[in-house]
């Protein structure tokens, strides 16, 4: 795997945002929704869907805003655009998940000011060509979805003894996992696992000693 990765590093780096340079685990962005509200699978899925749609549309459309506009105007336009996109997204989610949307509390509306829109758009995405930007953006948003759903499932199963609101019949659960501090700690361990894996992939493969000619 390491050899394959090192051989195709340039191509694979286009999709870094999904796993190796994951938005949440490597860059530490948009962690609040996962830590606080992402303690059930349903919440995680709703947050992920909203995040994917809002962020992709906002950043992609914002890339057409001329660079000659002052930074302040561009920043305001990015966030206002995200807030406008939020309107149909939240209405859609309320139709598909009635009542459940409110269980995400303030974290669904807060996606409007997530770091990918507010800061990473200017510092990373807009520096690429539109095609590569789209691929990078999709990788990043799907990376968020991966972590959110993984953490949400883990916390709901072990913390509540349910999955998607349905009881799993577990005799003992770990309610401590539903607290934000558990979210921080779980993300810490996932980030550590990713960091270790990344180090492994980037390590020089051990060279076998040459056999002597006798």
């Amino acid at each position: 795997m390491r050899t394959f990765y090192q051989k195709h590093k340039k191509t694979l780096s286009l999709f870094d945002g999904f796993f190796l340079n994951n938005t949440v685990l490597e860059r530490g962005l948009v962690i609040a929704p996962i830590i606080v509200a992402g303690n059930t699978m349903k919440n995680a899925v709703m947050l992920s869907i909203a995040f994917v749609i809002i962020t992709f549309i906002t950043v992609f459309v914002s890339s057409f805003i001329p660079k000659k506009f002052p930074y302040t105007i561009r920043a305001i336009l990015h966030t206002v655009l995200a807030a406008i996109v939020f309107i149909p997204v939240s209405i859609l989610l309320q139709n598909f998940f009635p009542e459940a949307v409110y269980k995400t509390g303030i974290f669904l509306p807060l996606l409007v000011t997530n770091s990918l829109i507010v800061s990473k758009s200017e510092s990373r995405f807009f520096k690429k060509t539109r095609g590569k930007m789209a691929v990078d953006l999709i990788s990043h948003v799907l990376g968020f979805m991966l972590v959110a759903c993984l953490v949400g499932a883990l916390r709901e199963i072990l913390g509540n003894g349910t999955f998607w609101g349905n009881s799993l019949g577990m005799s003992e659960t770990a309610p401590a996992l539903m607290f934000p501090f558990a979210g921080f700690i779980i993300l810490g361990f996932l980030a550590a696992a990713l960091q270790k894996f990344r180090r492994y992939l980037n390590q020089e493969p051990k060279r076998e000693p040459e056999a002597s000619n006798e």
């Binding site: 770990a174 309610p175 401590a176 996992l177 607290f179 501090f181």
Partner: peptide, 13 residues
């Protein structure tokens, strides 16, 4: 370490 463990147990259970 004992304080961390107790804190988690007290909040969780």
């Amino acid at each position: 370490p004992a304080a961390v463990a107790f804190a988690v147990l007290a909040l969780g259970w």
